[in-house]
Nucleic acid binder design. Structure first.
Lengths: 232, 232
DNA sequence: CAATAACTGCGTCCGGCGGACACTGTTTCT
DNA sequence: AGAAACAGTGTCCGCCGGACGCAGTTATTG
């Protein structure tokens, strides 16, 4: 499994010399999978469903991909794509742009939240995101472990916002959940006074952009404090 | 569905007057499910498997739980349990203890990472964790939205650490993944200079406690800066 | 006491899933 | 002209979540 994923994501992809030309490509398969997952979620992506989309039978897919897990790994690489060019400015501006870009990826492909839990092997594109974030911290005086920890921290924050953004999305049955939470608070709010007070004084639409920016600034403030302490 | 979850998590649980005594209890079912998920992961938990553990047939479980999703919701509530009593000290000490306790929960029940993606209705225990964290921030001068954002930020960090802790766990096939990542860096490290440099200068075992503490201190530093700025 | 209503647990069946395997047809090498 | 390598397909298996109806049990009602 780990071997298969590694060959799929990192190559080489030996193209056969004899036999019929393959009608599909790895990239085409991954793109079709991303399309389905974007529209209907990761659970709607079955081999059968994907094969129908591609006009083939489901077993033909196994000529390209060893199994579903490897397919998803390929889709992740396709969906996140390569990290964008770093923004101009200091490390703080660069990490801000990086975080917002990552949040955009999660917004466009919410199923990435499901696909990237659990231990897995990262592909070139996913690694390029890490690389860009780490590069922004070069020369700040942080140790290697600290730079890694800082990037993980940023990533977790963006993930968390994406998670709650998906939960509070006004579309679909999620709205019922929010209504249910409201009902819970109306009935049992006495047991949670701080929560009740915080929710009451929070704006209604609970803007996700605000939440992303808030956490981002706290993290960057914390990092800046450490960096200047080290330098000074 | 949302209705079912709400009745399961928040009650009331009307106990029938006529008919045979139920051989099982919701709590017992949830505990058995937690045991299985702890030992073999959430994917190993099927209705069949759970019924075998309880010495019943699988269909009998549907007398207690409407479906698998509701069962998992119940298991989440059981596994996280109620939030521990807040530590003594200021908001910073309290949030530190809270975060470490939450990290402990994720360490004991790694499947919670899988079970708590996606929109869902929180139960009393899960809400009690939010309540405790928010209560620690009472009187800090932060707005309600800011307090909520801060708690989400902390939760995301703990989640992220738990996620990477599970990935780099020395046990099982995850070790192969780390070995594979090392092989990738050996082959393609040239394309990721900052990553290579950070990993080279990081200690080998990449201590998770260090990562948890690092992010925690950055977040709390960032919050403290905001709080003192508001107060001053 | 008997009848009945409510309830638990079980057996059967269904559609869908990921995947193993053997087979046919196609292409390019020796 | 083989023969080897390869693509796509059809069939089959075990497992999953879940719908449904049935048999046995218990407390209420007449």
């Amino acid at each position: 499994m780990a071997d298969d994923v590694m060959r799929l994501l990192w190559g080489p992809h030996p193209q056969p010399k004899r036999g019929p030309k393959p009608a599909l490509t790895l990239d085409g398969i991954a793109r079709a999978g991303v399309t389905i997952a974007d529209a209907e979620g990761l659970s709607a992506l079955s081999m059968q469903r994907l094969a129908e989309q591609l006009g083939k039978t489901k077993m033909s897919l196994y000529r390209y991909v060893p199994g579903r897990a490897e397919l998803v790994a390929l889709m992740v690489e396709t969906a996140i794509a390569a990290a964008p060019e770093p923004a101009a400015g200091d490390w703080r501006a660069r990490l801000t742009g990086w975080s917002r870009a990552l949040a955009g990826v999660f917004a466009r492909h919410p199923w990435l939240l499901d696909a990237t839990v659990g231990p897995r092997l990262m592909g070139p594109n996913e690694l390029s995101w890490m690389e860009h974030a780490l590069a922004a911290l070069d020369g700040t005086g942080l140790t290697g472990a600290e730079r890694l920890d800082a990037v993980v921290l940023l990533t977790s924050h963006v993930r968390g916002i994406a998670l709650q953004s998906r939960a509070t999305g006004a579309e679909g049955p999620e709205a019922q959940l929010m209504a249910a939470l409201g009902e819970v608070m109306r009935k049992h709010g006495d047991g949670y006074p701080s929560l009740l007070s915080a929710m009451a004084s929070a704006a209604e639409p609970l803007a996700q952009d605000q939440a992303l920016a808030f956490g981002l600034e706290r993290i960057l403030d914390g990092l800046e404090a450490l960096i200047t302490r080290r330098a000074g």
